[in-house]
């Protein structure tokens, strides 16, 4: 049985952070939700882990978590990485909330660099740990300037850098953290998620919250907001392609893949999202995935060649 959390038999407040600071963070989150994609400065208080190691995500999680929440945390798609385990233990220790690996059962999910493959619903919040919140940083070093550029929607240099990337590499080569236009107003960095996940930010049912602890910024995408990856008329945004590739554990495709190498240098593909993979392998069911046109194309191609094995 999980012991319930009592105010006076603990050395710290519920969810570790004191109530006034939590209130400050929630106020900033409300502002962020009101201005989708806009970076709101916040206090970023000291935590028992170093800034830049998920503190921003943790601030958000601990400020919004309630006693009835069911908490899940993933690190690059995995519930079981050292980082995920430690942060899950920590959140559990300071809140006594239920924790889970099951994406569908969770009400609050903290993530590092992935959106779960399973579609999130209107009862769920996804909290991103963000290392660098400023999408314009690569083209402008100074914070005062980038804030002015956002204020005036002056995104010329951002666009030129995409043009330059296309000229040099033949593609808008933004590996992870592909910049998006939120609600037709602010260019936003979705944190280093793969391009595979980017379309799922658009018109979702769930609430997305972003916390950058080291940079002291919060931002948000409320449910049902337009989120459009930057693209040209003739050079379009594309997600990662895994042509004809199947997961070596589940035998299926249509999900973001890891390449795993063994000592002999051979590699195989495995679905990156550990909970999604578990459900495929152990429960023999394919959870409801996001519906976006990019994924739909992948699934259609997969279903057209059902026997293909990697």
């Amino acid at each position: 049985m999980i012991p319930s959390f009592k105010k006076f038999n603990s050395r710290f407040n519920f969810a570790f952070i004191d109530e006034n600071t939590k209130r400050e963070i929630r106020r900033k989150l409300l502002k962020a939700i009101c201005l989708p994609g806009y970076q709101v400065p916040y206090s970023s208080p000291e935590m028992p882990i170093a800034r830049g190691w998920g503190t921003g995500g943790l601030h958000v999680t601990l400020s919004v978590i309630g006693k009835d929440d069911v908490f899940k945390i993933i690190d690059q798609g995995s519930d079981a990485s050292v980082n995920a385990c430690n942060l899950r233990d920590f959140v559990h220790r300071v809140t006594h909330c239920r924790v889970t690996f099951d994406t569908h059962a969770a009400t609050l999910i903290q993530t590092r660099h992935r959106i779960p493959e399973e579609q999130l619903n209107d009862g769920q919040i996804l909290v991103f740990q963000v290392p660098q919140p400023e999408p314009l940083r690569a083209v402008e070093r100074y914070e005062t300037k980038t804030r002015e550029m956002h204020g005036e929607a002056d995104y010329a240099r951002m666009w030129v850098s995409l043009y330059e990337a296309f000229v040099r590499y033949g593609d808008i080569m933004q590996g992870a953290g592909y910049p998006v236009m939120v609600n037709g107003r602010y260019i936003m960095s979705p944190s280093p998620i793969p391009r595979w996940d980017v379309p799922n930010l658009h018109q979702s049912d769930c609430l997305y919250l972003f916390g950058a602890g080291r940079e002291k910024r919060l931002y948000a995408i409320p449910p049902h907001t337009d989120v459009v990856p930057l693209e040209f008329d003739d050079v379009k945004f594309r997600i990662e392609q895994f042509p004809g590739i199947r997961c070596s554990l589940s035998g299926t495709g249509g999900a973001f893949m890891d390449e795993l190498y063994n000592d002999l240098g051979h590699f195989r593909h495995v679905i990156n999202d550990s909970d999604f993979l578990d459900k495929l392998v152990e429960h023999k069911t394919r959870p409801q995935q996001w519906s976006n046109k990019y994924l739909q194309q992948v699934l259609d191609e997969m279903n057209a060649n059902p026997d293909l094995e990697s």
Binding site: A156, V160, D233, D234, V235
Partner: peptide
């Protein structure tokens, strides 16, 4: 680009 031409 700033004059609205987004065709590379």
């Amino acid at each position: 680009l700033m004059a609205g031409n987004f065709n590379v």
